[in-house]
Amino acid sequence: MPRRKRLRKVVAPPKFQGYKPYGINGESKESVELLYEEYEAIKLADYDFLNHSEAAKLMGISRPTFARIYESARRKIAKALTEAKEIVTVFGDIELDGSWFLCKDCHAKFTCPTPTEGIGCPMCKSQDVQLIGES
C-alpha cells in the first residue's frame, strides 16, 4: 500500500467553480480538473510571489512536493488553454486551514474563518496583523 498523502493546507478555496473558453465552435466537451491545492500553489507562487520553500511551509508539505503540485497545476492550465477545454476546480487532498494571524500591537493570536479584505485584530481593532501559519 502506498504511503498516504499528507493533507495540503489551503487558506481559502478558489472563489470560482471553473473557467469556460468562449469563441469556439460549439461547447467544449471535455474539461480539465484543477485541484484546490494546485490552485493554491499557483496563487502562492505567482500571485503572492512567495518562493517555493515559503509556499511549501504554508501548505504544510515539503518543497519538492510543492514543486510537483505547482508543475502539475501549470501543465493543466496550459492544456486547458491550448486545447480550449474547460477548467473545473475539484476538492483534492486538502484541509482548509483556518490560518492564524498575530496582532503586532497586543500580541493576540486569532483565526479568520470568513476571510475578508481588511483583516483586523478582534481585540484591539489594530490593522497591523501578520499571517503566521500554523500555531
Partner: peptide
C-alpha cells in the same frame, strides 16, 4: 477543538 471550531466557522482568539 480546533477542528470542530474551524468547521463551524467560529473565530478563535488566543491570549497569553
Amino acid at each position: 477543538a480546533k477542528d470542530v471550531l474551524d468547521k463551524f466557522n467560529i473565530q478563535m482568539v488566543i491570549l497569553q
